[in-house]
Design a binder for these strands. Structure first.
Lengths: 131, 131
DNA sequence: GTCGTTGCAAAGCGTTTGCAGCCTA
DNA sequence: TAGGCTGCAAACGCTTTGCAACGAC
C-alpha cells in the first residue's frame, strides 16, 4: 500500500541517522538535502504513517513540540515499544534517549489510583554542553 | 500595580477551589459564573501574571495543553516551588498533584550529562474512574 | 482623571486537511 | 493507467497581542 518514494526515504534516512529525537523542522532541513522541494505537510504525513508502522516513535516532552526518533531495530511491528525515557539539554535544546527506568512508580500515586504508564523527563546539560 | 478586579478574583477563586490542575477553558467556565462577560484572553493574561507572582503554577504534561494549579500556601514569592509530580487520568482527563518523588534520577543519565531537574507523569485511572 | 484592565478581533505557532496535479508500481 | 503521493494553501487548536473602550484607585 505504501509506495517507496524519494520523500519517504529522505524522511526515514534523516531520522535513522540522527541518533536522537528530531523536530519536524529539523527533519525538513535534513531531508531537503535529498529532495529540495520537500514540504512540511509531506513530512507530517510520513511521520504519522511511519509511526503507525512502528518504524519511528513520537517523543512528547512537557511544554515542547513533538519530536521523532528511530524505533529500535529489535522492535517488531507488533512488539511493545522499548520502554525508555528522555533527557532534554536546555542549552542546545536537543533530546537524547535514556536507558534504564526506576520502575512502575505505583507508590507515588494515592490509594485507589491505578498507574498504567509513566513518563520521565530529565533536564540539564548534555555531555557536550556541560564542558 | 495590580488592580483587584472582579475578573482577577474570579480566575484566582476558580483555581484555588478546584483542588486539581485546570485547563484555561475550564477556568473560563467556572469564572464566568461570577463574571459572565469574561474572555479567554483575560484568563490567559491573569494566568501569566499570577504565575509570575507565584500564586499559581503552570502544569505542562507531555502532549497536553497547559493546565494551572494553585500554589501551596506555604510557598512564598521567592521560595522554591514545592517539588511534586502529576497524575493524568485518561478516562476523565483530569490531572492530580502527587506527593513524593523518587529522587534526583542522575543515575539514569549517561556519563557527562548534568541533571538539573526532572519531571514525572503518571498515567492511568484515578480513584473515581477505577471503580 | 489616570493608567492599568478588559473584550474583541487578528495574528502566531505547530499541526492537519482539501484539493488538483504528479508519479510509482 | 489507477490510485496513492505531493505541494500548496487554508484551517485547526491553543496562546498571544494590538487596540480602543472601560473602570479601579
Amino acid at each position: 500500500m505504501e509506495r517507496n518514494t524519494r520523500q519517504r526515504q529522505a524522511v526515514l534516512d534523516a531520522i535513522d541517522h540522527a541518533g536522537r529525537a528530531l523536530a519536524p523542522g529539523e527533519i525538513l532541513e535534513l531531508a531537503q538535502a535529498s529532495v529540495a522541494s520537500l514540504n512540511l505537510s509531506t513530512i507530517y504525513r510520513h511521520l504519522n504513517a511511519l509511526q503507525e508502522d512502528a518504524r519511528i516513535h513520537k517523543v512528547m516532552l512537557p511544554g515542547q513540540a513533538a519530536r521523532y526518533e528511530a524505533a529500535c531495530a529489535d522492535e517488531g511491528v507488533d512488539a511493545a515499544h522499548h520502554h525508555h525515557h528522555h533527557f532534554h539539554c536546555h542549552r542546545c535544546d536537543r533530546v537524547y534517549a535514556l536507558h534504564g527506568c526506576p520502575g512502575s512508580l505505583q507508590e507515588l500515586a494515592p490509594k485507589g489510583f491505578v498507574v498504567q504508564a509513566h513518563e520521565i523527563t530529565l533536564r540539564g546539560l548534555c555531555a557536550g554542553c556541560a564542558k
